[in-house]
């Protein structure tokens, strides 16, 4: 074996990658691995960081808290499996809160992918509190066309849903005999990953004066602050953090609270990457400016030489 076969680390033929270039061009797979590690580790080894509750989450909690046993509440599963991670904890916590207070729940969904989620969550939470379908709660299933559904429910829930999800005629469901329109329902809670919270406000709130609270994905939450400020929305939860705040308020630990450490670490990592990218950007810009200055200087010198000649 000859020494020439293995180039040394100080091989002059291989130029060293400048720091600014390295900082500004980290391989995407490195970022992916870092995100995966930062998210997974706190789930395996929890840090138990404390969380504070926001004003919006407290307002959401208070709206359910002020209801009396036997009051009716409409609960809408306005999402599909893509957003389960963010919204399931809110749905579970809301239903736990409602069933704990013996509130009667009329559940439905505006999404065709919603019934599977609703059946699973309603089944689990109802079993936890010994609630029965038909008297303590009903699941009306999916209804097409969200806006027409929202408006029609203001006139008659039974006409909007002639049967429940399990084909029982609505006229045979005891719960719907007590509450057949918004005027007979104390509160409407929607857990949604789209603009549907806004549409519930516009159609159910605006046209029928229904009190509304909303659980939202983080992306959607930022858009509904104006409705909360005007009081059109009585309270809301924003993203997994909102779910964690609400879990803390009702005193049960769910996926929201369990996920908060991972959320913190992932955010910290992304902020670090943003800072890293910007340091690389600034250094690269300085380097390019220096290069341009040097080239300009060289060109001027050449021009000067030409004139002399």
């Amino acid at each position: 074996m000859t020494t020439e076969a293995r180039p040394s680390k100080t091989d002059a033929a291989r130029p060293r990658r400048p720091l600014h270039d390295w900082l500004a061009n980290v391989d995407r797979r490195v970022i992916f691995i870092a995100v995966a590690v930062a998210t997974a580790l706190p789930l395996i080894f929890p840090l138990n960081l404390p969380i504070k509750t926001s004003r919006e989450a407290r307002a959401y909690y208070d709206e359910i808290e002020r209801l009396q046993p036997g009051d009716e509440m409409i609960f809408v599963f306005d999402y599909e499996p893509d957003l389960m991670a963010e919204l399931d904890p809110m749905s579970i916590a809301t239903l736990r809160h409602a069933f704990r207070k013996d509130i009667q729940v009329i559940a439905l969904t505006d999404y065709p992918g919603g019934p599977g989620i609703a059946e699973r969550i309603l089944g689990e939470v109802a079993a936890e509190y010994g609630k029965t379908h038909g008297t303590d709660y009903v699941f009306l299933g999916y209804n097409p066309d969200y806006s027409a559904t929202m408006l029609r429910m203001g006139e008659s829930i039974q006409a909007t849903f002639p049967t429940d999800h399990y084909h029982t005629p609505s006229s045979e469901l005891p719960l719907l005999q007590e509450a057949d329109r918004y005027a007979e329902v104390e509160l409407l809670a929607t857990v949604t990953g789209s603009a549907l919270a806004e549409y519930w406000v516009i159609f159910a709130g605006g046209s029928y004066g229904q009190r509304i609270i909303a659980g939202n994905t983080a992306i959607q939450a930022v858009l509904i602050y104006p409705y909360f400020q005007t009081g059109q929305l009585s309270g809301f939860l924003g993203g997994l953090k909102g779910a964690a705040e609400y879990e803390k308020l009702i005193g049960t630990e769910g996926a929201g609270l369990r996920g908060m450490d991972a959320q913190s670490m992932a955010h910290l990592l992304i902020v670090c990457f943003i800072i890293l990218g910007n340091i690389g950007f600034v250094l690269q810009r300085r380097y390019q400016r220096r290069l341009e200055r040097e080239q300009d200087g060289g060109a001027k010198r050449e021009q000067g030489d030409g004139v002399k000649r």
Partner: peptide, 21 residues
Amino acid sequence: SFGYTVMGRVSLLIGRFQFLF
């Protein structure tokens, strides 16, 4: 909106990792 978008996407990943781990 950007801050909240990051938050939302990370939450979805947390959901899948909670399932796997």
